[in-house]
Amino acid sequence: MKKNWPLWEVFVRSKNGLEHRHFGSLHAADAEMALENARDVYTRRNEGVSIWVAESKNITASNPLNNGELFEPAQDKVYRHPTFYDLPDDIKHM
């Protein structure tokens, strides 16, 4: 079967101090080209200072069918949040 340019996911850091964020995807034959294409496609309006590209097939994803067991157990762990704890009003800076 004929091979087409694979799909890549593009992550862009908008400015130093911020994390790389998923911007979208594109097609490229190799990593070098993926970087160049990402630069041309996703930073035309000065949107970035750094780019990551990863071939989409190399990204492992959680299965939404397992969302219940993966994420719901965290919903009732309210004691992980500061508002769970009662403190006298006089206490400051805590």
């Binding site: 091979k3 087409n4 340019w5 034959a29 190799d30 080209m33």
Partner: peptide, 13 residues
């Protein structure tokens, strides 16, 4: 052109 880029990528790999 697209075929050439794929062939090149494979050789590089």
């Amino acid at each position: 052109v697209r075929d050439a880029a794929i062939a090149y990528a494979e050789k590089q790999a």
